[in-house]
Simulated scan of single mutants.
Amino acid sequence: MTDVHALLLPVGADLYALPVDWAREVVAPPTLTPLATAPPVVIGLFNLRGQIVPLLDTAALLSLGQMETTTFAVVVTGPHGLAALATTGFPQRQMLETPTGTSDLPGTTGLYQVGTEVAALLDPAALLTPERVRDPAARLDPTPRGDG
């Protein structure tokens, strides 16, 4: 596997890495409009220069419980439009080199050593599907569906 240019996302005591080409921008905690009918993973919606963006609870999306606070939001351009991943600390750019292991956590593709910590590399294409947002406990199926 080649080196990965990533944005490190602190989520509580854990560290996750988002491939930098998925990140559009980092914003301070936005003013949110809650949605009573939204899945629990959707913290709320915010306005980003005229575009409505859902803020997703990154811990809940990974089936790790719910975040208590959001310090920053990383806006990503996903397969179904804009979304934002909540973080509990300021995201940092980092070049990830050789993976140090595999991750059993759904929606991640490997583990990388970052100083004294280990970061799990996120697979945004798998995490940001409508099915995953509706039900984070749903099994992630990497096999594309469709004819042929």
Rank of each mutant, 00 (worst) to 15 (best):
P130H: 06
P29G: 02
I43N: 06
T69V: 14
T88P: 00
L48D: 05
R134I: 10
E97T: 10
R139H: 14
T129Y: 12
G110H: 08
W22T: 08
T102F: 06
P124T: 15
E68A: 13
F90W: 15
L128A: 06
L18K: 03
S103G: 03
H80V: 11
V75E: 05
Q92V: 11
P79G: 07
L64Q: 12
L32S: 01
G101V: 07
P106N: 01
G50H: 05
R139E: 12
F90Q: 09
A23R: 01
A36T: 13
T37I: 10
L96W: 13
R49G: 13
A73M: 03
L122Q: 04
V53Q: 05
V114P: 02
T77C: 05
T102A: 11
P29D: 02
A59E: 06
T98R: 14
T102R: 15
V41S: 05
Y16S: 10
P91M: 01
I52K: 08
D104R: 15
A17P: 02
G110Q: 04
D123Q: 11
R49W: 02
D21M: 03
T88S: 11
A126N: 10
A83I: 10
T58I: 03
E117M: 14
P142N: 00
A126V: 11
R49D: 06
R139I: 04
L85C: 03
A86D: 03
P29K: 09
A13E: 12
L105K: 06
T70L: 07
G115P: 00
T58H: 02
Q94S: 05
A38L: 14
L55C: 15
P79H: 11
Y112M: 04
V76S: 13
G101P: 00
P19G: 07
G78I: 05
R134V: 08
P136T: 06
